[in-house]
Design a protein around this nucleic acid. Structure first.
Length: 453
DNA sequence: AAACCTTTGAAGCCG
DNA sequence: CGGCTTCAAAGGTTT
């Protein structure tokens, strides 16, 4: 099991995050390194078509065997029908011609392990972990390098300056101090998903920006799904975590105008349980940053635990509708008024989303590609393809996403100390309350068996 | 309009 | 502690 973290003690994430490399993925991934997108997609297509029926294809269906069968075949049947129908169309293919030769394995020219025996990042991993580097460095020429590598991932673009090389060297052994000074991309633009985009987990759709500047326009046409040519400005902004350095960095959200009802500094001091250690405090430099870089109404109160003071896309406010209905109820009874008020305040608290896991990051990056190459638009079907591609990834490729997910969790912990995933459970105040979901098939089967006895 | 579907992984809950 | 559940994203589909 590759241990990504060099053991610097900064791994605040789950210890077992790398456990889950799938064995069958190793077999599958061998197919893919040199295969064309067309072939890959054809494989995916055929496996999708067949997987619910026969598992003839040993290379792609071992995973399907492992998993419990779907609760209902109806959707899959439909998907299969649409696949088959699509297969009859055009040149017999469901998929469009691949825009990226060699896709989807174009990201990593160097497939050797980027990690040294001691678990740290090897120097040759430079081209491999371009987005990891993205986390750490703002050096301009390095950004250019990273951009070049992202635009032409097969090019082994030499890291430019000594500075950036040194930065990379530092990245190999991240320490807590190092992390404090890193920069983590937080904002992603809607539909801004292409191979050039680092994996930024928090979609800025939650900012509901009114009119983002032209350079931030999505690079994938939402209608056609066809990627547009990338723009250097598409390099994701960085999220300055370090209070000490934060004032030096032009803020990526400079164009952002706070919208009505949108959370700006939503986290209050007392709102959390404390699974996360309280990490950062707002110091003077940050305060000055806030006051100098943001309009007064965006300057967070000093008591806020929100250490960056920057509106975060992981934050979603609750519906005004919900609030008003509750306040009406509260006003009916004076004894309950305070409770209602408390409840209202609780509801006013933003909904902080979970950090994305490795697969979610992968999906976010790759979805647009798959959509562009495939006539299917249904997310469920796309996700099936993405799931298979995920398993087809090499360990090194997956490792990038695990590492990124780890950093995501880390950032999330720093941004929202005290936040718990439990906060988002629909039974505990999530705005996205759902009806009780049907029991899973395994549970149903279990139940069924017990009923038969 | 809201829930569903589908994927994997992290985390919470419960027996 | 193991197994189950929920939720992250996405957007077309279904209810």
């Amino acid at each position: 099991m590759p241990q990504l973290n060099g053991g610097g003690g900064d791994d605040l994430g789950a210890n077992d995050e790398m456990i889950s490399f799938k064995d069958e993925g190793e077999q599958e991934e061998k197919i893919s390194e040199n295969s064309s997108a067309e072939r890959d997609l054809a494989d995916v297509k055929s496996s999708l078509v067949n997987e619910s029926e026969t598992n003839q294809n040993s290379s792609s269906d071992s995973e399907a065997e492992r998993r419990p069968p779907p609760r209902s075949e109806s959707f899959r049947d439909k998907t299969r029908e649409s696949l088959e129908e699509a297969a009859k169309r055009q040149d017999g293919g469901l998929f469009k011609s691949p825009p990226y030769p060699g896709y989807p394995f174009i990201m990593i020219p160097d497939l050797t392990s980027p990690y040294l025996p001691n678990g740290s990042l090897s120097p040759t991993a430079r081209t491999v972990s371009w987005f990891s580097a993205h986390y750490y460095y703002e050096t301009n020429d390095y950004q250019i390098d990273v951009y070049l590598q992202m635009k032409w991932p097969l090019l082994d673009v030499q890291a430019g300056s000594l500075q950036s090389r040194q930065a990379l060297k530092d990245a190999r052994s991240p320490s807590p101090a190092h992390i404090v000074s890193n920069k983590v991309p937080v904002v992603q633009h809607p539909h801004h998903v292409h191979p050039l985009t680092p994996l930024i987990t928090y979609s800025n759709e939650h900012f509901t920006p009114g009119n983002p500047p032209p350079h931030l326009q999505a690079d994938v046409d939402p209608k056609t799904g066809i990627p547009r040519p990338p723009h250097p400005s598409d390099i994701s902004p960085y999220y300055p975590l370090s209070p000490g350095t934060v004032g030096q960095i032009p803020h990526p959200l400079g164009w952002l105008v706070p919208q009505q009802g949108q959370p700006v500094y939503p986290i209050t001091t007392g709102g959390f349980r404390h699974p996360y250690p309280t990490a950062l405090t707002v110091n003077a430099s940050m305060s000055s940053l806030f006051s100098s870089r943001f309009p007064p109404h965006m300057v967070p109160p000093h008591h806020s635990l929100h250490t960056t003071g920057i509106p975060h896309p992981a934050i979603v406010t609750h519906n005004v509708k919900q609030e008003s209905s509750h306040s009406d109820i509260g006003s009916l009874n004076s004894s309950k008024h305070q409770d209602a008020k408390k409840e209202e305040e609780k509801k006013k608290q933003p909904h902080i989303k979970k950090p994305l896991n490795a697969f979610m990051l992968y999906m976010k990056e790759m979805r647009a590609k798959v959509v562009a190459e495939c006539t299917l638009k249904e997310s469920a079907a796309i996700n099936q393809i993405l799931g298979r591609r995920w398993h087809a990834l090499s360990r090194e490729e997956q490792a990038k996403y695990y590492e990124l997910a780890r950093k995501e969790r880390q950032l999330h912990m720093q941004l929202y100390p005290g936040w718990s995933a439990r906060d988002n459970y629909y039974s505990t105040g999530s705005p996205k309350r759902r009806k009780a979901r049907p029991k899973r098939l395994a549970a149903l089967m279990k139940e069924d068996i017990s009923l038969r006895r």
